[in-house]
Design a protein around this nucleic acid. Structure first.
Length: 432
RNA sequence: UCCGACGUAGCUCAGCUGGUAGAGCAGGUGACUGUUAAUCACCGGGUCACAGGUUCGAGUCCUGUCGUCGGAGCCA
């Protein structure tokens, strides 16, 4: 048997006989010649089967193969201008590994979102979904590369937590040996403990929000990467977020051109993600919204409309810093220059993709933090360990969290985050 | 939770003022040696989401339930 080759390597084997192992993506026929579209996860190639090459028996068999039949096929690689990938295979022989027991539900024609979501496990085989999952994988690799190459240590935070991290959103409650526990909504507080031990850490894992949010930007289970750095202030945090995003976008652009092309992504929108990002104060953002005729005043948080209106003004991510402290989490340090505001930053992605990063300098003073916990009516006992971080060698520190799915949606140019993760978990949607 | 739209063949949809259910694709059979969502001919395929109601008669009108989608709020 000729050597097994993957489709994305075929261009290096022109003239050779090779073996492909894959699935039938589509089939056309023209009497004395059959065209089999074979996919193997790395690409799709057309295999030409003529009666003269494969013989009477296989030729008749080829005409009956159903979509998604798994098969192993030997053939000679030929250069061909008509092929989208520049080559096609002249089949010599093939064997069927398994025939579908029934008709494959996802035909090459149009389908609605509801149907495709119900068949998500099969939808993943489509050209478009494969491209998205590859880009997601590349984004995660770029994130790890970035931090691993800069002295950060990966630190996993627990998924089960005894109480709310931030006290702001609804959590999933689980039974923990007849006691209550919650699925984490953020690894940040644990990341802070890590930063005091290791200096620079990043937490990377799934997070859970039991919000009844039914929008294109929300999932109940999503992934976040959360760097945390000791002796870092807000300005340093913004520098880090900016440098990080430029590197991640750059790596995706370098390594995933073909996938971005499948998605018909406008690359100029990603190529403009360069330093420096605009940095505007919250109050400047309010003024900007007012100039655009949006009702906004100090104390308002920004909804999707406002975020989109702000992002329209810039060709790259925009950093909005120093929000009013009362609309932000208890652990954020207040700005000594203006105690109404917190030393925090949100990064809004371009093109209306919304908030992808939220970060802040953390409150490092024990007494102030104790007061905040009381103000927010949080269970003090659950935070004693966190307060210890301020009792024993407290230092200024900062970090941020990046939502993976929103980043994937932005870089891929997707309308909805449900396509950015293999099996999305949404309000009233937990299967497949 | 609120607002709106939708639910008809495996899929995507049409179905007017209430009068015996349609198309394209997919599937099956056949033709075709270069197709790119091939083309052409023929064939099979329906609990019109579900439950009530109005009517001589309901896919169509009314009420309720369920489901899906979009948006808001909430949230990242």
């Amino acid at each position: 048997m000729p050597a097994h080759v993957y489709i994305d390597e075929l261009a290096h084997h022109i003239g050779e006989e090779v073996t492909l192992k894959g699935w039938l993506y589509g089939r056309r026929s023209s009497g004395k010649i059959h065209f089999l579209q074979l996919r193997d996860g790395t690409g799709i190639v057309q295999c030409v089967a003529s009666r003269a090459d494969v013989g009477e028996e296989l030729f008749a068999r080829a005409d009956k193969l159903g979509q998604e039949t798994s098969l192993i096929l030997d053939g000679v690689v030929r250069e061909d201008k008509r092929s989208p990938i520049g080559v096609e295979l002249h089949a010599q022989r093939f064997s069927v590994v398994a025939e579908p027991t029934q008709e494959y539900p996802i035909s090459p024609k149009e389908h609605g979102t509801a149907f495709l979501m119900d068949h998500r496990h099969l939808w993943l085989r489509s050209r478009r979904q494969v491209a998205i999952l590859r880009i997601r994988s590349e984004i995660i690799r770029a994130i790890r590369n970035y931090f691993d190459g800069r002295g950060f240590t990966l630190m996993d935070a627990p998924i089960f937590t005894p109480a709310a991290c931030e006290g702001t959103s609804n959590l999933f409650e689980v039974n923990y040996f007849d006691d209550k526990a919650y699925l984490t909504q953020s690894g940040q507080l644990y990341g802070e403990a890590g930063a005091m031990a290791l200096g620079k850490v990043y937490v990377f894992g799934p997070t859970f929000r039991a919000e009844k949010s039914k929008t294109r930007r929300h999932l109940t289970e999503f992934w976040m990467v959360e760097p945390e750095v000791a002796y870092l202030d807000l300005d340093g945090d913004m520098d880090l977020a900016e440098d990080f995003l430029v590197e991640v976008v750059g790596q995706v652009l370098r390594n995933r051109r073909p996938e971005l092309a499948v998605l018909e992504r406008d690359l100029s929108k990603l190529e403009s993600v360069q330093k420096p990002f605009p940095r505007i104060r919250y109050e400047e953002a309010i003024a900007l919204l007012q100039r655009k005729g949006k009702p906004a005043q100090f104390g308002d948080d920004f909804g999707a409309d406002e975020e989109t209106a702000i992002s329209e003004e810039f060709d790259r991510p925009v950093m909005i810093h120093r929000y009013p402290s009362q609309i932000k989490a208890f652990y954020m340090k207040r700005d000594p220059a203006d105690p109404r505001t917190a030393l925090c930053v949100d990064v809004i992605a371009p093109e209306g993709y919304g908030e992808i990063i939220g970060g802040s300098q953390r409150e490092d003073d024990l007494a102030t933090l104790e007061a905040r916990i009381a103000e927010h009516k949080l269970p003090r006992e659950s935070f004693e360990w966190y307060l210890d971080l301020r009792r024993y060698g407290s230092v200024p520190h900062a970090g941020f969290g990046l939502g993976i799915e929103r980043t994937v949606a932005w870089l891929c140019g997707l309308h909805h985050v449900r396509e950015t993760i293999p099996f999305p978990r949404m309000l009233e949607k937990i299967t497949p």
